[in-house]
């Protein structure tokens, strides 16, 4: 299968150089050609796996467990100002 690697890369928000795209294209095609063997399997009526043990999703009480840790959690941000994350201008 021919894949438009640059289109997929844009969906994944990864910039690729033309050389990278040229290298990746046949690799992705060979991976997908390999997984295409799944298409031949009869899965009519088979339930897709959602959780390996069919466990239900447990709920916990909606309470604060670890308090306000904003400073610690923001300490790893690339760019901050007054406790806000700074990104390039979005709206002119």
């Amino acid at each position: 299968m021919d894949i438009d690697v640059q289109k997929v890369a844009m969906l994944a928000r990864i910039r690729l150089t033309d050389e990278e795209a040229t290298e990746l294209s046949p690799q992705l095609s060979s991976i997908l050609a390999y997984v295409d063997q799944l298409a031949a399997v009869d899965t009519e009526g088979v339930t897709p796996t959602a959780h390996p043990h069919d466990a239900s999703m447990p709920l916990r009480a909606n309470v604060v467990t670890n308090g306000n840790r904003r400073d610690a959690l923001q300490a790893v941000a690339p760019k901050l100002e007054s406790g806000l994350y700074v990104v390039p201008k979005v709206i002119e």
Partner: peptide, 25 residues
């Protein structure tokens, strides 16, 4: 990129859903 392709519009049933069914088998 492999995962993004498999989950992209029009391919979900053929790849992810199918793989999760094979997983059940």
């Amino acid at each position: 990129l492999t995962g993004t392709f498999a989950l992209s519009s029009g391919y979900y049933d053929a790849y992810y859903l199918k793989a999760q069914q094979v997983r059940t088998l």
